[in-house]
Simulated assay, not measured.
Amino acid sequence: MKNKPLLFSLNELEKEILILKAAIDIIDSIVNYNSLDIHHFEHGSVVRFKTNIHQEYFSIYLVDFLSMPASGFGLKKSSYISLLNDVCSSPAFDKDNSIAYLIKPVTEFYNWLETEITIKQLWFPTINLKIDLKITYLEFLYIGGNVSKHNFTRLSACATKMQRILKDNNVNKETMECLLALEDYQNWFHGEGNILGHLSSTIVKYLNNIRWGIHHYLQPEFLRSYTSGKERTYSYNSPSTILNPTIKFCYWDLMNSIRRNPYIPEFEVSRHYRHHPLIVQYSYQGNSR
Rank of each mutant, 00 (worst) to 15 (best):
K2S: 14
N3E: 13
I17E: 00
I26R: 04
I26G: 05
I27R: 03
D28M: 01
D37L: 12
E42Y: 07
S45T: 05
N52E: 14
Y57V: 10
S59T: 12
I60Y: 08
F65G: 06
L66A: 07
G72W: 08
F73V: 07
L75C: 08
K76G: 03
I81W: 00
P91Y: 00
A92G: 07
D94Q: 01
N111Y: 03
E116F: 00
T118I: 13
W123E: 14
W123A: 02
I127D: 06
N128P: 04
L133V: 04
L141S: 04
K149Q: 11
K161M: 15
Q163N: 11
D168L: 13
N169D: 09
N172Y: 11
C178E: 09
C178W: 01
L180R: 09
H190Q: 11
G193F: 04
H198M: 13
S200R: 05
S201G: 13
S201W: 11
N208L: 08
R211T: 06
W212G: 07
W212T: 02
I214N: 08
L218C: 03
L218E: 02
E221G: 00
T227F: 01
E231K: 15
E231Q: 13
T233R: 14
S240D: 12
S240A: 14
P245V: 06
T246K: 07
Y251E: 08
S257F: 00
Y263E: 13
Y263S: 13
F267H: 09
H272W: 13
L278G: 02
N287A: 12
